[in-house]
Design a protein around this nucleic acid. Structure first.
Lengths: 131, 131
DNA sequence: GATGTATATACGCATACGTGCATATTGTGT
DNA sequence: ACACAATATGCACGTATGCGTATATACATC
């Protein structure tokens, strides 16, 4: 039986924007008010709010009002979808073991010198800002 | 030259396009000539070639000329990067055990009760069309 | 109720992106 | 050399997207 996880597909579109990724990264530390996020991103508050709305609609975040503030935090679903998606391609670099073995092996990857994958790493954009 | 795999960041931009994802999916089956891909996507050959170039530049695919044809196939790197990235968010849905235990438990997910469902649900395309 | 803070939304703009069409390029067979 | 097949590229266009500015809305405190 095949399990088709219809991948929101939208997940990638959402994550495609650098500002949005930055926001998500920020939220990884935990619940944040909008202004807290604004302090960490290089765009205006209006922009952050817009991005948060997009993230919300896509299920990446949830919101909890607290007084005047709105505390945003990450939700698991889209990330899990992403994980499920990428799992389809693990065979590209994993040894062919059964599922259990694969999971185990993955646990050993955690030990490998993981690169600082968080901070926006300017790879080279295809066209956008050439810099 | 050194190869720093600090999350291309570009990975998401590349995967953001539905046609490109479709192409990647297609290539999951194995090496394909351009026209084979064209047959499976809803865009012109010129578009496919362009997308393949983008995928190539981003390291998603490699090419092997064969006569008049050009056989494209997937490369592991970007997918591994993606896997590494999403790994940072696994704690969102995995029980808080140490990394090793987490990996182990992943193989037993069946037993775990579902996460408290959160508000935002649908996540429907903000604008663009997909599918 | 008035004021100040925190966040969301409307508007307009610049631009980057995907696409199709036409054409160039490369390779094959005769 | 010629004709054909496979693929790549230049060009133009429509449109979606992210941004900032200005404004609206919600809440708290006095």
């Amino acid at each position: 039986m095949r399990i088709y996880i219809a991948m929101n597909s939208y997940v990638f579109e959402v994550l495609a924007d650098p500002s949005r990724r930055k926001i998500v990264e920020t939220l990884r530390a935990g619940e944040c008010a909008v202004n807290d996020v604004v302090a960490r991103v290089a765009i205006q508050q209006s922009g952050v709010s817009r991005h948060l709305r997009i993230l919300m609609e896509a299920g990446f975040v949830q919101m909890r009002p607290q007084g005047t503030q709105r505390l945003y935090s990450l939700r698991a679903e889209p990330f899990r979808e992403l994980d499920t998606w990428v799992a389809l391609y693990r065979s590209l670099w994993e040894t062919r073991l059964d599922r259990f073995g694969a999971a185990l092996e993955r646990s050993q990857q955690v030990n490998r010198p993981a690169q600082p994958s968080s901070p926006t790493r300017p790879a080279r954009p295809r066209k956008k800002q050439a810099a």
